[in-house]
């Protein structure tokens, strides 16, 4: 009989208690146990970045963690960025305006990578932006509009904080 462990994880401010097998990937836990399907899975070997979440505030790949490792930790997923589609945050708004997404599959991973990046780098250069998103693959956009979106987001965030 496989081992089952009880875990408590805070996701987007909500505490979830679940019993899981140790081998359950954190990405599957978020998507299929919690039903938060905004976090996407693209490669399950840590290259594409689609499954990026915030784990205790840091952007990490949820396909390279087990759900049991999230016990007593805090997670934010794309669903935690804004309350609903009518109220986007500055980063989401900028992606919308700059056409920073096409199929949208990789987008949650980009947003979760960029959230802490912009908090730490409020005025990034193009080069810094490209380096920051180099661990997220996008097959649709060619990245140009994503870079535009990040610059726009930085400007919006500066505006709202001043």
């Amino acid at each position: 009989m496989n081992q089952i462990m009880k875990i408590s994880v805070t996701v987007n401010g909500v505490l979830y208690e679940r019993s899981v097998e140790p081998r359950l990937l954190l990405s599957d836990f978020i998507r299929h146990e919690l039903g938060l399907t905004g976090t996407h899975v693209g490669c399950e070997h840590g290259v594409c970045g689609a499954c990026t979440i915030l784990f205790d505030g840091a952007a990490v790949r949820s396909c390279l963690m087990f759900a049991v490792q999230a016990d007593a930790h805090e997670i934010v997923t794309v669903e935690g960025l804004s309350p609903d589609p009518q109220h986007l945050d500055a980063l989401q708004e900028a992606f919308w305006e700059a056409h920073g997404l096409q199929c949208g599959f990789c987008t949650p991973g980009f947003l979760m990578t960029l959230k802490p990046f912009l908090a730490q780098n409020p005025d990034p250069s193009d080069e810094e932006i490209r380096e920051a998103i180099s661990g997220n693959l996008c097959r649709c956009t060619g990245y140009e509009h994503i870079v535009d979106a990040v610059k726009l987001a930085a400007a919006k965030m500066k505006e709202s904080s001043s």
């Binding site: 970045g49 784990f55 840091a58 990490v60 790949r61 963690m65 990578t113 380096e131 180099s134 661990g135």
Partner: peptide
């Protein structure tokens, strides 16, 4: 250090 993989990998 910057040559090691990508930011998300370096975070973990």
């Amino acid at each position: 250090m910057p040559h090691i993989a990508h930011p998300q990998i370096r975070n973990r």
